[in-house]
């Protein structure tokens, strides 16, 4: 009898705990590395503290999150997901993410219009910070100041230049950007193909970790990378600095999404609203050196100097690709790259 009572009590406790866990927990797919660390510090730790909820943080690159969303379409396990531009637009097109209701997420009103991604008046993604990919140079070894993307083709930098590889989300927008600068368009990529065939690159790196090794070891003297990642190396006394070239830097934003079919919609909306608070967006800007999508963010002098648009620019100076077009053209661009540039 006593045994039965103990079992009953244990069962009751377990079901209550499981129920509480299910009610007050969220599964969030966010970024890896230094991005994930700072997102945890600025967004998730503060949300957990104030709301007493459990957050399961899955650190994944954007493409893997998109694949997971696709696989779980009929029974989503993820509640909130951060995605890059191309995957964000694709997720909306595939009905993997839901429209975000401004009434449920009132902090959306602070956000710059360029970070509200919408179709037919329905906002499906909100940018939580603008990042960029731009040139950088080793300040000790490269004497000539880089002022243009095309300085990377300087023979003096032969076999010392690194650029994002096809695995990375900034590969396609950079390829399209260079093509446009050379007079090409979305139907003609010959100018970029011809130009990249000429480039004597050290590598087209597959991950941020690998390029960091190349730069730290002094193998790579110039190239294109995230300015905030270059500043992180600079803080470790590696003599590198990002450059804002005359053509501008290619930008994007890290976007938050409400997963379609989430069983915890109210809590997920509450988290998104929290992520869009001015102090949270400023915290991300301060720690990740990404541009907060709000007016006059209160950033330190150091962070202001390190914004993706450079020390003197603003959000207006960023070159925003058409991510929908990037997503649509990406498979064809990778195919062209493989056939025409890699296997010359």
């Amino acid at each position: 009898m006593t045994r039965n009572r103990v079992l009953l009590a244990a069962g009751l406790c377990m079901s209550l705990t499981a129920g509480a866990y299910a009610q007050d927990s969220l599964v969030i797919n966010m970024y890896t590395g230094v991005w994930g660390t700072n997102m945890k510090k600025c967004i998730f730790d503060t949300f957990q503290e104030t709301n007493k909820v459990t957050l399961q943080l899955d650190q994944k690159v954007s493409s893997v999150t998109y694949t997971s969303l696709r696989q779980q379409k009929d029974n989503p396990q993820i509640d909130v997901a951060w995605l890059d531009g191309a995957e964000s637009d694709q997720s909306w097109a595939d009905s993997l993410v839901d429209a975000i209701d401004p009434a449920k997420v009132p902090n959306m009103k602070h956000v710059d219009k360029r970070a509200l991604h919408q179709t037919d008046g329905k906002v499906y993604a909100v940018g939580t910070g603008f990042y960029a990919t731009g040139p950088f140079q080793n300040t000790k070894e490269v004497k000539k100041k880089i002022t243009s993307w095309f300085d990377l083709w300087d023979p003096a930098l032969a076999n010392r230049v690194v650029l994002p590889g096809t695995e990375l989300s900034n590969f396609a927008p950079i390829f399209m950007f260079i093509n446009k600068q050379l007079g090409g368009d979305s139907k003609n990529f010959e100018p970029a193909i011809a130009k990249f065939k000429e480039l004597k690159a050290l590598s087209y790196y597959p991950s941020s970790g690998v390029v960091a090794s190349s730069i730290q070891s002094g193998e790579a003297l110039a190239g294109a990378h995230y300015p905030n990642a270059i500043w992180a190396l600079n803080d470790q006394n590696v003599p590198v600095e990002p450059v804002v070239p005359k053509e501008g830097v290619v930008a994007g934003d890290i976007r938050v999404h409400l997963v379609k079919g989430t069983k915890k919609k109210a809590l997920a909306e509450k988290l998104i609203d929290h992520a869009l608070k001015e102090e949270v967006l400023t915290c991300l800007g301060e720690n990740l050196f990404i541009g907060p999508p709000i007016k006059n963010p209160k950033l330190s002098e150091k962070a202001k100097q390190r914004m993706p648009w450079g020390a003197t620019g603003s959000l207006d100076n960023l070159v925003m690709p058409n991510w929908k077009e990037v997503g649509e053209l990406k498979p064809m661009l990778i195919d062209l790259w493989n056939r025409r540039v890699v296997q010359k």
Binding site: Y66, T67, Q90, E167, Y204, Y205, P206, P331, I334, V342
Partner: peptide, 18 residues
């Protein structure tokens, strides 16, 4: 990224081009 082998192309198809 200057040479290709089949697993790299397969990775591109699955996780980049979807």
């Amino acid at each position: 990224g200057r040479h290709l082998v089949m697993p790299m192309v397969i990775f591109q198809q699955y996780l980049v081009s979807f």
